[in-house]
Write a protein that binds this DNA or RNA. Structure first.
Lengths: 342, 342
DNA sequence: TTCCGCTACTAGCACGTGCTAGGCGTGATG
DNA sequence: CATCACGCCTAGCACGTGCTAGTAGCGGAA
């Protein structure tokens, strides 16, 4: 029961009866080996269960072929972005190294570990860092940094974000077309990308000549189900009014779901009495029992864009960071409908 | 705008005016350096932004101090386990390397990457591998493997799982104590850990002298919201019956939520008309608009147990793998109550 | 003085891989 | 016949770190 050492190229070489260099050459698909030898080396590698030592490889290699990704497992839309990063990176010849940001494992710790692996670039998804935090990260890490989420174009790091303002505008347009005139916006004030989305609401309402009605919900972003709670609280506030709006919009699906369920539980029919809409098109919005009209910000496209931005900065040394805006699309489901006649 | 090379120990040594070895010694907290030198080396390391090259380190080091973790970002309870692994590993002096299992990145690929990093052990969470897959993984990887999820004790790999059968039994006990006599069990048949939980239901019902009523729902496990859909379909089937049961139990929260929402939408009051309970105590169960009675399988404890099992196998070479069963606890919320008088 | 032990440091090899520079044989070209 | 090109292979160094085996310097004991 001894712990055997994993096989190296030297072991393969000895097994086949050639030099170690030739094995390296074959496994790198470099020219200069006969087909017969290639076959024998590959067979031996498979037989011995060879797995290249990425540490040794990154040590020798001039430039790294790894993308470091920081993400928060607790947040909902991020897993989909992470999933999209894998094939995008693979298509460009890069490997992915993940590091989680949690309450016991800070963004800085995650970044330090990734830098220890000598990643070629860092992709930070939905980080808790503000602009100055990201800026200093970009400066000290010496590698290109891509922030996925929110922020404005700058010269320190790349940004990939969805067009949250235009998405909300489209949503309001949809409601206005259905005939809604009283559309309330519930704003969980602690939401990172919230300001942009609220602006979209304000702009669209103004364009339609309708009065804005914003319900601002304070709270702690880091709390477990803050968003859903904010929606629920907002629903109770609305229920205390003499008259309900005909439609309610929230800048994320969790808040909208909190609204929806609380309204339904209190005898309000959705969409008959009140239309409800969210943003993100999270899995929860697609449940048949929720079936929420929402705005989809394509997580796959965001992942691909992040990889593209990172690879571009890596391979064209010295180019300026840029901002990539991913278009959103309206997903109409059964939680919105024309308002009842009064 | 040239891409500078990250600083090495040799750079620090040159900066301070000592040998490279002494820098290594200081940064490893090994004895044999004066306090004054330690301070100067540490200051220089900080000033230059030194980050140790983990590749070089793992190359030289006899045994690795990394735990490789395979997880599926799309699944719901796993992020919480991953979060718990970080502090547990840190407490024992291990680093964590994550690799995701997605539709475009198989478990095998994820494992190969982790083995490339020369992890000391592998922790596989909620894998799609069956027993023989895990067995061959354990055999070819040459490192201890810990499977978190389900399975039976065996000599090839460790198992960490929750006591799903006892958890469901407790849940049925709770319902029986409330006075329920007609308790239906909805079984999404494709669920990996499903058999164990169903046995718990059957055992408890028998103990209480009640007839079992199992609604088996076929379907594809890998589909996006299969579980919630299964619950929704089951609700429709129940609604077609002449008489509803007074309580419904599901082996996971998604199915229970599908049940609950579909029943509510069709005018059935929960818990007044029907009590509904799930399993997992997933975030969705805790939403105030759902407030589902459930069985909590402590994800934190599962993460810690997985790390413990892995470290034990790593540090006591040759010990046999074992099975760790994490106790569950009943979480009573407002979706269950005493049945109405008939 | 010599020897010993201690502190503070350095020399040097090893880990597994990538890559450049060569070497050796064979067949084609001058 | 000498030279060259080419296909196939090997020698050897480098990457950044951990660790063992030293080696000076210095104070104290014999």
């Amino acid at each position: 029961m001894e712990a055997r050492r994993p096989p190296t190229m030297a072991d393969i070489a000895a097994h086949v009866g050639v030099s170690r260099q030739l094995v390296s050459l074959v496994l790198r698909d470099a020219p200069g080996a006969s087909d017969e030898t290639r076959r024998r080396v590959r067979d031996a590698a498979k037989e011995l269960g060879f797995s290249p030592h990425v540490g040794a490889r990154s040590l020798r290699r001039a430039r790294s072929k790894d993308l470091g990704v920081v993400f928060a497992p607790a947040h909902s839309t991020e897993p989909e972005i992470v999933e999209a990063i894998y094939p995008a990176a693979a298509a460009r010849g890069y490997d992915v190294i993940l590091s989680a940001q949690t309450s016991t494992h800070s963004t800085d710790q995650a970044v330090d570990e990734l830098l220890g692996h000598r990643c070629a670039a860092l992709i930070v998804i939905g980080s808790d860092l503000d602009h100055s935090g990201l800026r200093s990260l970009a400066e000290r890490s010496l590698v290109p940094v891509v922030d996925v989420g929110q922020g404005k174009r700058n010269q320190y790091y790349d940004i990939v974000r969805s067009s949250g303002d235009k998405g909300i505008e489209e949503l309001v347009d949809h409601l206005a077309e259905l005939g809604h005139r009283v559309v309330t916006y519930v704003d969980p004030s602690a939401m990172p990308a919230g300001a942009l989305r609220r602006r979209g609401y304000e702009r669209a309402m103004k364009r339609h000549g309708l009065p804005t009605d914003i319900l601002s919900m304070p709270g702690d972003y880091t709390a477990g189900n803050y968003f859903e709670e904010a929606g629920s609280t907002a629903a109770h506030q609305l229920l205390r009014r003499r008259k309900l709006p005909t439609a309610v919009v929230a800048p994320n699906d969790d808040t909208a779901v909190g609204l929806l369920h609380t309204l339904v539980r209190n005898g309000v029919r959705v969409p008959d009495d009140v239309s409800v809409a969210g943003f993100d098109d999270a899995p929860i919005a697609r449940l048949t029992s929720v079936d929420l009209t929402s705005v989809r910000q394509d997580p796959g496209l965001m992942g691909v864009s992040a990889v593209e931005a990172a690879v571009r900065r890596v391979e064209q040394g010295g180019v300026r960071p840029r901002e990539t805006v991913v278009e959103t699309s309206l997903v109409i489901r059964s939680s919105t409908a024309a308002p009842r006649r009064r």
